[in-house]
């Protein structure tokens, strides 16, 4: 199983230090949460790891291979997937079309037409159509398959983004606020889905403001404030950490 290793990641925008020496790792089958106040630098970490922006310094490695210098699409081919906080769906395509494009793009670069990383079908060999249907089914989107994504509510659109990312069969996936826009029931089911994906070997790095969900599904957590990791550990450790409480509510007056 491959592991994402981020070490000493630093991003500077002009004079501002947006992310400073962030190190974290996500192994296959693991769910790691990344939380912190607004503006702490979570999405910047995602952008730097996925190659959307170039970090000032630091290293990103996937399965032991340094991918820091690779463009975004090569990182994706190495097995890194992501979703976006501000939706990046193909809004003029249908739900099925979105997932289909993810799968077709993967087939265009993956030499064997597929790769071993497959988390939804227990390794069964699937035709493209049935793989798409399977993904839609698991995300409860089958009923909406022919809807144009641009017309969907945010919650559903986020699931479409997740489905599309899964169709590319990443080994590690970065999820940026995937549950915002879902109601309570949907969030619970979503948590179960994340669990089953990680159970099948997918490594997940999760940014999410629904702290309840984060606390419930994550194996470990990192708390980011002012671009630095101020606390790490499991849910209870983080909840008890005084620095975290301060970061969220401001230093006590």
């Amino acid at each position: 199983m491959s592991t994402l290793e981020v070490s000493d990641l630093t991003v500077r925008f002009g004079g501002n230090l947006a992310v400073s020496k962030v190190s974290l790792s996500v192994a296959g089958g693991e769910i790691v949460g990344l939380i912190g106040p607004n503006g702490a630098g979570k999405t910047t970490v995602f952008n730097a790891v996925s190659g959307v922006i170039t970090p000032t310094s630091g290293k990103v490695a996937l399965a032991g291979r340094d991918i820091s210098k690779l463009p975004t699409y090569k990182r994706a081919r190495a097995g890194l997937g992501r979703t976006f906080q501000r939706l990046e769906v193909f809004s003029s395509l249908s739900v099925r079309g979105n997932v289909q494009v993810g799968l077709e793009i993967r087939k265009s670069w993956s030499r064997r037409g597929g790769c071993d990383r497959q988390y939804l079908a227990d390794g069964a060999d699937l035709s493209a159509d049935s793989e798409v249907s399977l993904i839609l089914d698991r995300l409860d989107l089958l009923g909406l398959a022919d809807e144009i994504v641009g017309a969907l509510p945010t919650g559903q659109a986020r699931l479409v983004e997740l489905g599309r990312a899964l169709a590319a069969r990443p080994s590690i996936i970065l999820l940026d606020e995937p549950a915002s826009g879902l109601d309570e029931n949907e969030t619970t089911r979503f948590g179960e889905l994340l669990r089953s994906l990680s159970g099948a070997g997918l490594g997940i790095l999760l940014v999410e403001h629904d702290v309840g969900l984060v606390m419930e599904v994550c194996d470990s957590l990192h708390v980011l404030d002012f671009g630095t990791v101020i606390a790490s550990g499991d849910a209870d450790e983080v909840r008890q950490n005084a620095a975290v409480v301060d970061a969220y509510l401001g230093a006590g007056t």
Partner: peptide, 24 residues
């Protein structure tokens, strides 16, 4: 074809295509 769908996708969101492994 798949190619046509991909072009639409690229117009809708180039960055998403890149994170799926597409060389824009």
């Amino acid at each position: 074809s798949a190619w046509g769908r991909r072009l639409t996708a690229m117009r809708d969101s180039p960055v998403a295509c890149a994170t799926l492994g597409l060389n824009l």
